[in-house]
Design a protein around this nucleic acid. Structure first.
Lengths: 329, 329
DNA sequence: CCGAATAATGAAATCGATTTCACGAAAGCA
DNA sequence: TGCTTTCGTGAAATCGATTTCATTATTCGG
């Protein structure tokens, strides 16, 4: 591969001038510009970005940390992030923590080695105190999920509202015995949703049973298991508010196997509004989360952060969660 | 951040010696090794990988080109790839071509700038001739999909077999009027599946109508549209072999809306065996593709290729496609 | 005991860009 | 005309590692 030196030599100029032409610096005569461009073209020259990055101490590479890319919520978020990144010629590295504290830290270490210019945490297993140390090595942002007490820019939704909306809907449908399940309780998202859920219950003067409360439910299989547990109960809930469409889909699927009727035997509210929520039969009532919008916005802000050192606001909540009513309630 | 120079100074040694210790070179006394390790630890030193890469002209970064990460087939493949890459401390960059020739080339250009050490094409819009030029800038491999005449290592499945199995199954179920739909006809995968499909038909002495043949069907919406078209036909097929579970799910969903019975009015075979195939009601009979296995294997081979310059075999076909029978047939 | 091989280390070159500094030419101003 | 800016350019330093080459100390074989 041709280097900047080869171009300089062919053009009969110095490397400095070639560099100036490439970076659109002022004070280069048109005549020399033309010479440089011709030489570059003739040699098929492409600048080595490693050298550039080393010298300028910047990197157009952003890592996004997620549990698993095969989770549709995250893949749709990452889809939007990558599109946004590509617009600015940034690269997106996918880092799957598989919900493991240690793996999360391994990826954060990459900031130190300057392999990446910034990290977007779209999920997080570690406490803020442990993540905080990495902020001195590069920009860090949270997207959607975040642990308590964070001190870096965070793009997210009002999860309280989502929890409230879904539960309120069930109450309006006449349900009085409402179960619920949520994801990891470490996450502020989860506790906010819980607050919304409990507030709606309280507002309607409803109480709930201890055993109707399921935690750490994240996948289809968890949903199936939850349905089986409910089926075995004496005192069954008539509705359930879940923390994800996947869990809801698992419940719906298992109900079918057990010959239970949705929503008559059990009404189900999902969360996220993934494609599956619409495809299932019955279609799943859910809380729409604009995963693509928050992904794109986070990436946009991260790029500004890296390129112009513009630290975004501490907290960005620009969207509303919406209730999408389908046949499962 | 501390540099190798700082470590050398603190240890009272030269940068060369520090480098030797880090890279486990022979001929370094235990005494000096200890000094270096202490200094590194004291400074919290982490080597700058940009500098290393520039000097050694190698990069532990691999790009994988796919149409969209939100497509479950690809996200599950990428999931396995990333896990494999992480084992060797390689980074995976997700590049979404959005089925655009130009975008695909933009990502391939990154090979020239040395930003990436290799490219895995898990989808491809360009002809081999146009991709071939990039082989001189770094290792390129195909995974699953590939255009005709490729000359680089390719990890894939026997798609002919998949097409044959699915169609054969429909024939055994007594269907004689079988429609089909496939993805992009540019891809060898598609034409192989078509061959399998046609061979099964021919073997059974069946013919098909021109209008039962749908092409470029890839997404849920395409499936819905296909069902509507079929519903309007006078001479309807009794079964359809689709090229993806998403298309099949779209068909099943739209059928429900039209009040059609699956499989009585129309039997449907999907492809890929995505989670959705099991979740739909009725469950979708499909061809299982070991997307994770081929993803992991491709990554494994690519890493060997980059690290030890071991070019893998031209063609790697190590798995069988399996028919998974559910209620849609 | 001497020459050769081996061990241990550092100085300096190198990877390929950007950027600072110096310098001469041209232009602007009094 | 003389002095200060503004242009335009190149030499050399720089980013932070690795690697070559040279050098000295030590060990080994005969």
């Amino acid at each position: 591969m041709a280097t900047i030196g080869d171009v300089a030599e062919l053009a009969g100029l110095s490397r400095a001038t070639v560099s100036r032409v490439m970076n659109n610096h002022p004070y280069v005569s048109e005549e020399k510009k033309k010479l440089v461009h011709e030489a570059m073209h003739q040699l098929g020259y492409v600048p080595n970005s490693l050298a550039k990055r080393l010298r300028t101490q910047t990197t157009e590479t952003i890592a996004v940390l997620i549990p698993r890319i095969s989770n549709p919520f995250f893949s749709s978020m990452v889809e939007a992030m990558e599109i946004k990144a590509a617009e600015d010629n940034f690269q997106l590295i996918v880092c799957q923590t598989r919900s493991d504290k240690q793996r999360e830290l391994v990826y954060l270490e990459w900031l130190k080695t300057k392999q990446i210019g910034g990290v977007i945490l779209a999920s997080s297993e570690n406490n803020w105190e442990d993540i905080k140390e990495y902020t001195k090595f590069g920009p860090i942002m949270f997207c959607n999920e975040y642990p308590p007490n964070t001190e870096v820019p965070t793009v997210c939704l009002d999860q309280y509202q989502g929890g409230y909306l879904g539960t309120r809907h069930l109450i309006e449908r006449g349900h009085q015995r409402i179960a619920c399940c949520f994801g990891s309780s470490r996450i502020t998202n989860t506790s906010d949703r819980q607050k919304g859920f409990l507030h709606a219950l309280e507002e309607a003067g409803l109480s709930m049973e201890e055993k109707w409360w399921f935690s750490n439910a994240l996948e289809i299989e968890d949903g199936k298991e939850i349905f089986r547990k409910i089926a075995e109960m004496d005192n069954r809930p008539s509705a359930i508010f879940t923390g994800s469409d996947e869990v809801a889909a698992g419940i719906v699927k298992e109900a079918k196997i057990y010959g239970a009727e949705i929503p008559n035997d059990l009404a189900v509210v999902g969360y996220d509004d993934q494609p599956i929520a619409e495809l299932m039969d019955p279609g799943i009532t859910t809380i729409h989360q604009p995963s693509q919008e928050i992904g794109a916005r986070t990436m946009e802000l991260m790029i500004q952060y890296i390129k112009h050192n513009q630290k975004p606001d501490q907290k960005i909540v620009e969207w509303f969660s919406r209730l999408i009513v389908r046949e499962s309630t």
